[in-house]
Design a protein around this nucleic acid. Structure first.
Lengths: 123, 123, 123, 123
DNA sequence: GTGGTCTAGACCACT
DNA sequence: GTGGTCTAGACCACC
């Protein structure tokens, strides 16, 4: 994984895990990797992994059973809501940023086509 | 101006000025407010304004004339390019975030309608 | 270290560090001294060292890892290029200055011998 | 004339005038342009021209006769010495800079050939 | 008046 | 412990 120096590593790892959850690569109730093995996998400090798990717990995305490890919440509603929140945030940030550049909603939608890196120009 | 505690003030002020430039509220070649007066207006320290102007100069958005002040670049191409960059970034962040949630480009475009807070449902 | 009052301290410290890098006294990838310890060593304010490190980062001479410190780039090509640039600048400034005094390239080369304080006259 | 933003304008103008003197474009004893006309010619503030003339007077390159204007010194020895000083400084700066990059005098002389922008590679 | 530099000292986030 | 940001207040050079 490549880290962006601008944002804290623990946030980037949190996001990676959340993505795995909302996209179903990690199932509800599934056990997450141990702090040590995740630290190795992501080549980060175990302290940082601990913080990641703590923050995910704060957001009620995970829970910890003493001596057993950290698990994804079994509350599928919570997961769906999380995905919803993330999508809503995405849309809000995009429209907000576009508005600050002077684009209204319709123009913003057109930006999507104009600047889509993979878009066919004629489509 | 309201500051977001998550991102440095100087970046937020930089963005505010860039927006004023790309939207034409500040014209090419126009003199920017003095360090001291902007500091008063934004209720921040003059040193922080200084940093803002220096970073903008690094990005070739502004230039400064000794003893005379700081001015917006007269290079309208640079300004257009800046606006382009800002829009492209916006689109990239949006599509990228959507992709990480498992949405392709078409689905992302539909998110815009679904989550637009001000959208009319029938439109 | 002795400071020349004419040029800003942070530029002088930047140059000192660059010299240590291009001459190999600091190796590629090596950790630089901490902001605080360099401040003590050079008897300047930690903020000034901070600025030095940031400017060096702008020039892609260094990079910083959150909480770990500032490191010399591992890109040896960049370092070679830096040395090249510094030498080229030196030559340019010299020939340019000589030209303004009315000396062409050959005459400039002869100035080197004539005014070299340590030169042996017969060599 | 193009100004370098790094060094004060008055120094750059001083240098331009000194160059005109040591290269003979302005003769010993010749009257310099008036403050106002030089200000127009160089598109700088008359105050800045005044400073230039004052500093040149300090360096005994010029002298002022009340109501008559500013004149180049008639002391040709002083002018020759000035040219000598400028050349010596040039050499010193060059050798000094080269030494800091780890080049001795011989290597420095070779840099001249290697980096001469107008040099023929085969020569 | 303008911006540029520097110090002192504080607080914060990250590892 | 690491660097990053911000404030306060000072001094300087330039126009």
């Amino acid at each position: 994984m490549e880290y962006n120096t601008a944002t804290p590593i623990y946030l980037q790892v949190m996001d990676a895990i959340k993505r795995d959850i909302v996209t179903g690569r990690i199932k509800p109730g599934e056990k997450l990797k141990s702090v040590r093995s995740l630290a190795v996998e992501y080549t980060i400090n175990p302290n940082t992994v601990s913080r990641v798990y703590q923050e995910l717990e704060n957001e009620q995305v995970c829970f910890t059973r003493r001596g057993m490890g950290t698990f994804v919440t079994e509350d599928t509603g919570r997961i769906a809501q999380m995905k919803d929140d993330m999508a809503r945030n995405l849309v809000h940030d995009f429209l907000d940023g576009a508005a600050q550049l002077g684009f209204d909603r319709n123009e913003a939608a057109q930006l999507l086509k104009r600047y889509d890196p993979a878009a066919d120009v004629t489509s």
